[in-house]
């Protein structure tokens, strides 16, 4: 996938660069890109280490468990199949808690575990259930309380107030998560009605 992206972008850039008369800049762009990636990593690796370390402490202290227990009553509304069977709800709330705390590395394994459990009660193994879709769509709208990567990159780019975006990010990511839950619930009932209509026909 990334190979294709790299291939398409580099070929397109070379051709268009020459045609548009920016050939000379391309050479510098490659050098700057290689350098930029290294300095980007340097500006990120400190805060990433710190955050992963702190989150490991929280994980060991049982904070993810506590948070997911707090969240589970709310989740029952949006994941009715999982809450009926009892299968997968724990993993779903652990996934959301890990996302909230900004531990992306822990969130994905929880989500994959949840998918596995949801698949157990799936009648048609090739087709996604409504709960699975809700989980996937919810994960595409990242709900993250402290987006450390963004602060680090803003600071590295010379921002005087790297934290100024935190509240807009909260508002926006909350709205996006709410929207994805609402859309998925709406689509769930629409497709249920559609299925019933098919049977009648």
């Amino acid at each position: 996938m990334l190979g294709k992206i790299f291939g398409i972008i580099s070929i397109l850039s070379l051709f268009c660069g020459i045609i548009l008369g920016h050939g000379a800049e391309l050479g510098n762009a490659v050098l700057d890109g290689a350098h930029g990636a290294v300095s980007l990593t340097i500006s990120l690796c400190g805060i990433m280490s710190l955050w992963c370390g702190i989150m490991k402490v929280f994980e060991r202290a049982g904070l993810i468990n506590k948070l997911s227990r707090l969240l589970s009553p709310l989740l029952k509304v949006f994941f009715p199949e999982a809450s009926r069977s009892g299968e997968g709800l724990g993993e779903i709330s652990a996934n959301i808690s890990a996302n909230l705390l900004g531990i992306g590395n822990a969130a994905t394994p929880f989500a994959l575990k949840a998918m596995e459990k949801l698949q157990k009660n799936n009648k048609n193994k090739k087709t996604a259930t409504a709960d699975m879709i809700t989980l996937a769509v919810l994960n595409t709208a990242s709900l993250n309380l402290i987006p450390t990567t963004i602060f680090a990159l803003r600071r590295a780019a010379g921002s005087e107030s790297p934290y100024s975006v935190i509240i807009p990010i909260w508002i926006c990511s909350l709205s996006c998560s709410a929207l994805s839950l609402l859309l998925c619930s709406a689509m769930r009932s629409v497709s249920k009605k559609g299925a019933r209509g098919d049977k009648n026909a």
């Binding site: 990334l2 850039s13 548009l20 930029g36 280490s49 994980e59």
Partner: peptide, 30 residues
């Protein structure tokens, strides 16, 4: 945890180099 974080950050560097070059070329080409 910090060691894992460091490993992740450094581990994505090769990918990042390729993609950063691609994005920079895209910008420079106009």
């Amino acid at each position: 945890g910090a060691r894992d974080g460091l490993r992740t950050a450094v581990g994505i560097l090769p990918t990042l180099i390729a993609l950063m070059i691609a994005i920079n070329m895209l910008n420079a080409s106009g």
